[in-house]
């Protein structure tokens, strides 16, 4: 069976700096894989190379066996890579519903004329996609704020909307960049529940960048550890926690308390 997502010897360089150095791993089935590492380890850069925002200087990313090298960012997205950003990156000024509707962009094709007149097939499509978006709103319990401009929402809710928006794309694989950073303990617990429900309802693999080691140990089925752009460990949570290289990377922190290396980023 071909894995859903394969990262194959990906290297990303900026000028002289190597942000990601020959990293390989893959995701399949409904795996929940945590990607961890200290600040600046190259986690976001790696996600960007999967989304096509950064281009690997060598190596390639494959989605269901097809190489993503040279594929435009928006095609990678419509091809099945859903992405929630580290800083939410919502469209300020649009409401929650409209932000999520952007996630349904692919299903809302139509000519300019059909959109300007807004009758017939286009209107039916808009109504149908609105119904899909409402399901996601239900799922994430965002009913209260659906018509609020996202910029008026607290940061925790914004992050949730970012994840909801990615899920609206009906992706084959979901990339989550620190979805829980900046959330309160309570919100984090809610978020953990959402992650488990996403996996249960949608059954899709997720690559989840996370700094909260307690959450990672509780939820992840597998952990990939990056340090200075190099993959230093890949395996089950317990094995990774025992790994001496990982412990050195999270210097001075023993594995029972490997909560956080560095400041929230």
């Amino acid at each position: 069976m071909i894995p859903t997502l394969e990262v194959d010897k990906v290297r990303i360089t900026f000028g002289g700096i190597t942000a990601v150095d020959d990293v390989s791993f893959d995701l399949s089935g409904q795996e929940l894989v945590a990607l961890i590492g200290p600040n600046g380890a190259g986690k976001t850069a790696l996600l960007n190379s999967i989304s096509g925002i950064y281009r690997p200087s060598s190596g390639e990313v494959r989605l269901e066996g097809r190489s993503l090298n040279g594929v435009p960012v928006h095609k990678i997205a419509t091809g099945g890579v859903g992405r929630a950003f580290q800083h939410a990156e919502l469209f300020a000024g649009l409401t929650v519903v409209d932000n999520l509707m952007v996630g349904r962009h692919r299903q809302l094709k139509g000519s300019l004329l059909s959109m300007a007149v807004r009758v017939g097939p286009y209107l039916r499509r808009e109504v149908a996609q609105r119904a899909v978006v409402e399901e996601v709103i239900d799922f994430f319990e965002l009913e209260q704020v659906r018509n609020r401009p996202v910029s008026s929402l607290p940061f925790g809710v914004q992050k949730l909307v970012g994840v909801a928006r990615a899920l609206c794309m009906e992706p084959r694989v979901l990339l989550l960049d620190e979805p829980s950073s900046g959330l309160t303990r309570q919100e984090k617990e809610d978020f953990a529940r959402f992650m488990l429900r996403i996996r249960h309802d949608r059954g899709l693999p997720m690559l989840w960048v996370e700094h909260d080691m307690q959450m990672v140990m509780d939820l992840a089925e597998r952990i990939v550890v990056l340090d200075h752009g190099v993959k230093i460990a890949d395996g089950a949570p317990d094995a990774v926690a025992e790994n001496p290289a990982v412990r050195t990377a999270y210097l001075g922190v023993d594995d029972t308390e490997m909560t956080r290396a560095g400041s929230p980023g």
Binding site: S51, I53, P72, V73, H74, A77, T78, R83, F85, E89, L90, F91, A92, G93, L94, V102, G103, H105, R106, R165, A166, M169
Partner: peptide, 13 residues
């Protein structure tokens, strides 16, 4: 608002 996020959501910017 956010060109890159739009693109990563499948919008042909």
């Amino acid at each position: 608002q956010r060109e890159l996020a739009a693109e990563a959501l499948g919008v042909n910017v």
